[in-house]
Amino acid sequence: MNVPSKLASRAIEIRGLRKSFGTLKVLNGIDFTVEHGQLVCIIGKSGSGKSTLLRCINLLETPNSGQILVDGMDLTDSDVDIDAARRQIGMVFQQFNLFPHLSVVRNVSIALEKVMKRSRAESERIARSGLQRVGLEDKANAFPAQLSGGQQQRVAIARALAMEPKVMLFDEPTSALDPELVGEVLTVMRKLAEDGMTMVVVTHEMGFARELADRVVFMDSGVIVEDGPPEQVIGSPVHERTQVFLRRVLRTGDTGNSGKERGDKGTDT
C-alpha cells in the first residue's frame, strides 16, 4: 500500500517519453517530474517539443512510448478512463479556444453540467464565482467575440479551473496576446500559483518564469537540456544551448526585463 501512495505523492511523473509525428522525432526520451504545488516553466525555442510534451500530459497527443503518471494515475495504461483523467488536468491554450456559440458563463459551466452532471443552475452559480476569481463576473452574459484577448484567456482559465483540476497546464498562454494584455493574464496565473495550484507553463515570459517558477526546464531537440531553479537555469545556465537560447531571447524580445518589471510592480493594468 505504501508504494502506490508514494507514486501518488508526485503531481506529474513522466518516464522515457517518446513521441514522433511520422518520421519527425519530437520527444526523444523525456524524464520529468512535478511535485504537488510546484510551478514549472518550460522554455525553449519553437520546435523544441515543449508544447508536445505539455499536450502529452493530457493525452491530446498519444505518446509512442514511455509512461505518464498524473497524481499516481498512469495515463498510458489502456485501462485508464482518459475522460475521467482529463477532468483532473486543466488545459489553457495559446488560442484560448473558447466556445464561440456559448456565452461566457456557459463556456465555464458547460463541462460542469455535461461531465459532472450538475444542474444547470448550480453549474452557472459555480461558473459565476469562477469568473469572479478572474475578475470577469460582469462579462458573464457576453459572448467570447465581444471580449479582448486577455479577457478571453482569463475566461479560458476560469473554464479549466471550474473542474477543480489537480494540475493546470498552460500552453504559451500569453503568446497570442497584444503586449498590453499580457499582464492581466499573468496576474491571474500568479494568484493561482500563490493559492498553491500545481502548474506547468510553456512560456516565453522569462520575467514570469524568473519570478514565480519553482523550476525552469529548458528543452531543445526533444530532450530536457537543463532543469533547475530559475536563478540557475535563467540566471547562470550551465549548458551552451541554454546560454545561446537565453542570450537570443533576452536580447531581442527584451522579455526578461519587461517581464521582471511586470513582476516587480505587479500587473494590475
Binding site: L60, R86, R87, I89, F93, N97, L98, P100, M163
Partner: peptide, 29 residues
C-alpha cells in the same frame, strides 16, 4: 477549428459529448 474539440476533450467531455455540445452546434450555423 480543431482547437474546439481539444478544448472540449480537455475538460473531460467524451467524444460524443463534445460533438453534441460543441462541434455540431457550430457546424449547424
Amino acid at each position: 477549428p480543431k482547437g474546439q474539440m481539444e478544448a472540449a476533450r480537455s475538460l473531460g467531455m467524451t467524444n460524443s459529448q463534445s460533438m453534441r455540445s460543441v462541434i455540431i452546434p457550430q457546424a449547424i450555423r
